[in-house]
Design a protein around this nucleic acid. Sequence first.
DNA 1: TTAAAACTATATAGCCACTATAAGGTCAAT
DNA 2: ATTGACCTTATAGTGGCTATATAGTTTTAA
Lengths: 134, 134
Amino acid sequence: MRIGQLARSVGVDTQTIRFYEREGLLPPPERQDNGYRIYTERHVERLAFIRRCRILELSLAEIHELQRYQGAPHQPCRAINTLLDDHIAQVRSQITDLQVLEKQLVSLRASCNDDRDIGACRVLEGLSEESMQQ
Amino acid sequence: MRIGQLARSVGVDTQTIRFYEREGLLPPPERQDNGYRIYTERHVERLAFIRRCRILELSLAEIHELQRYQGAPHQPCRAINTLLDDHIAQVRSQITDLQVLEKQLVSLRASCNDDRDIGACRVLEGLSEESMQQ
DNA sequence: TTAAAACTATATAGCCACTATAAGGTCAAT
DNA sequence: ATTGACCTTATAGTGGCTATATAGTTTTAA
Ligand SMILES: [Zn+2]
Ligand SMILES: [Zn+2]
Ligand SMILES: [Zn+2]
Ligand SMILES: [Zn+2]
């Protein structure tokens, strides 16, 4: 199959496929005489794997690491689970940070209503005050 | 004061200050004969404002917009509050997305322990299965 | 006094994971 | 013969910095 069909069947852009190839995540496929890339079912699976990892927001480096593990099936899988644990920890830390952020924003927003002049807007005041610093 | 002192007093890198100047967030300061930038207290305040906005993860475009509002103090502040409301909505949506992500990751992680061969690792299986797609 | 350290300047590239644009070659159908 | 859909490579842009290279200036210390 050609790149367009692969792209449609997995739901990514053709540019993204070429990008993954350049980044070493997708093996370079055979070429037709005219230079067109020709993909196999293996490529579909490989690309789908990448996409599922990306949905979980694993980085390309992490996906690369997982692919290396796939090539060594007789080693213990501790490293894979460690990778996942680290990623989960990072997602949790992002959530916590954003929750702190949300509180600060809501508190700032609550300091003003919509019926003031900008010159008297407490939101702008809040952003201009030293007290808001951290 | 020169750029280094401004940087230290607000807690940013000198490069960041020059970057903000290029982006139009910080007005170009006077220069000494040798070309060195000379800043005033106004610049300190302006940079501190930017930094406080950045702590709240407002984008440079949003900060630019707020600065424009500061120049028109006799207009109603509705636009400011709308900007903040939009930003809060976006932060909340990020939190929700990350919470969904966390659940998926934890569920995937729970499917395996550390004592398997990579060839039998359920985490890798999960990432390779079509069922995980969405 | 001079050499080193610390500061300043500009310009340019890199980060991440794409996305967009340009400029062109290939192929099937009309 | 031309349209249109597809393919190719190369290059630049996104955001908000951060790092590097190269060079000029000021301050400090031997
Ligand atoms: Zn990760
Ligand atoms: Zn207001
Ligand atoms: Zn925002
Ligand atoms: Zn496992």
